[in-house]
Write a protein that binds this DNA or RNA. Structure first.
Length: 117
DNA sequence: AGTCTGACGGTAT
DNA sequence: AATACCGCCAGAC
């Protein structure tokens, strides 16, 4: 469980929602911070998604945070993982990474909106 | 209380 | 096409 430190009221549990969504990312697919933020109704707060994952890094083993990259497919969060484990985890799922960037990102991209369907 | 810093993204130059 | 800036907002100082 992520530690929610913000005030209980405004607390929409954004962090938890982020975790829930990220958990739904299928293996071998990737998504972006912006897409998740948008899906949660905070279109302009993509940074908060990364921030949330950072907050939840202690449960990283349950959250495929490595499948979340920025809108260009760039592994911007790489340095938050040990060594280059982010890339390694992606590669292990068959996702090609070249120069810190997901190859064929556009077709591997998974939009949270698919959850609704 | 003021300032700075991000696992970002869009717009302007 | 490449930078530069700006909005976003919770935390750390």
């Amino acid at each position: 469980m992520p530690q929610i430190k913000s005030t209980p009221q405004k607390d929409d549990n954004f962090w938890e929602k982020v975790v829930q969504v990220v958990k739904q990312i299928p293996e071998g697919r990737v998504s972006s911070y912006g897409a998740i933020a948008s899906f949660l109704g905070l279109t302009k707060s993509a940074r908060m998604v990364g921030y949330a994952l950072n907050n939840c890094k202690h449960i990283q083993h349950e959250v495929p945070a490595h499948r979340v990259v920025n809108r260009n497919g760039l592994l911007t969060g790489k340095h938050n993982f040990e060594g280059n484990s982010m890339q390694e985890k992606l590669m292990a799922e068959g996702i090609l990474v070249e120069k810190d960037q997901v190859v064929n990102f556009k077709s591997l991209f998974w939009n949270p909106e698919e959850l609704i369907k």
